[in-house]
């Protein structure tokens, strides 16, 4: 088990890239376009290696690389670490590096994108923490191996919380209707705007790791039933891609109201209900 999880964590940038390629293909097919090849993210990756890198200043570039390293570290902590809560906090740390980079340059789009990124963290991470608590409540373990070998199926006890988690995925992955911090053609990528060449490559790859991170958390809701877990992951991603194609960007206030007014009470209600019922 440990060996498989370790290899998965090691290969996670590649698998994340494949998921991103699939996403682009699927979204193109939904719009009746042919779409790029599935390996397109890797072509982009290799091309960016051969571009001249224009640094704004070294701290900014360092934060781009730190984002990638910390995001990968969070995936490792999730897959082979002792506690999934730690992985969630490391994930916040990775996003904070990214925001620090965004704040460190004078470009207004970058600063605005970093501010919005903070709002994303505020909206999405509490629900991830609740998801970890829910996994503990229904399986009795904070550890990924314990969850994967327990004989309960968390989604059966936590249906409302799972719905809240699925609706958090667009906030985490910055997909429409919650693509507020990236907002292509409005603030043109937000905090990633000033990166170029190799440094943009780091940020670009770090975003693939987000798929793995959220995908694994969704997978855990299948418990020891791996087929159910895989189905949940596929259904979640398909739903998010469809939602991305079908909706337009909402405002930041709406996102906060939605996350703290609807998703969080939903998740909390589910947790209290299960905790009291047992």
């Amino acid at each position: 088990m440990k060996g498989i999880l370790f290899t998965f964590a090691l290969l996670s940038p590649i698998i994340g890239g494949l998921i991103y390629g699939l996403e682009r293909k699927f979204k193109a097919r939904m719009q009746n376009r042919q779409g790029p090849p599935i390996l397109q993210p890797f072509y982009d990756f290799f091309k960016l290696t051969d571009k001249r890198a224009l640094q704004v200043h070294s701290f900014h570039s360092l934060m781009g690389i730190a984002f990638f390293v910390a995001a990968w570290f969070a995936v490792f902590a999730l897959l082979i670490g002792p506690n999934i809560l730690i992985a969630i906090f490391l994930h916040v740390l990775a996003l904070l590096f990214f925001t620090a980079g965004g704040f460190s340059v004078k470009s207004p789009y970058s600063v605005m994108g970093a501010l919005r990124e903070l709002a994303h963290i505020l909206a999405a991470e509490p629900i991830l923490v609740f998801a970890a608590i829910a996994l503990y409540l229904s399986t009795g373990s904070w550890n990924i191996e314990g969850i994967l070998t327990s004989n309960t199926v968390p989604i059966l006890q936590m249906p409302l919380l799972f719905c809240a988690l699925v609706l958090t995925v667009p906030i985490l992955l910055k997909r429409s209707p919650f693509d507020i911090s990236e907002a292509h053609q409005e603030i043109i990528g937000g905090a990633e705007i000033e990166y170029s060449g190799l440094f943009y490559e780091a940020v670009y790859t770090a975003k693939w790791l987000e798929y793995i991170f959220i995908g694994v958390i969704v997978f855990l809701f299948g418990g020891s039933n791996y087929l159910l877990g895989a189905l949940l992951v596929a259904a979640t991603f398909l739903f998010v891609w469809l939602l991305d194609n079908a909706t337009t960007r909402l405002t930041i206030h709406y996102m906060m109201k939605f996350a703290w007014g609807i998703l969080l009470p939903l998740a909390a209600f589910n947790i209290f209900w299960v905790a009291i019922w047992r």
Binding site: R24, A28, R33, Q34, D44, L48, I188, I193
Partner: peptide, 18 residues
């Protein structure tokens, strides 16, 4: 959708640095 330049990997990046 009709001409679909994205099938060649082309995207409108809108950002000169990339």
């Amino acid at each position: 959708p009709k001409y679909d330049l994205e099938r060649f990997g082309i995207i409108n990046k809108g950002n000169p640095k990339q």
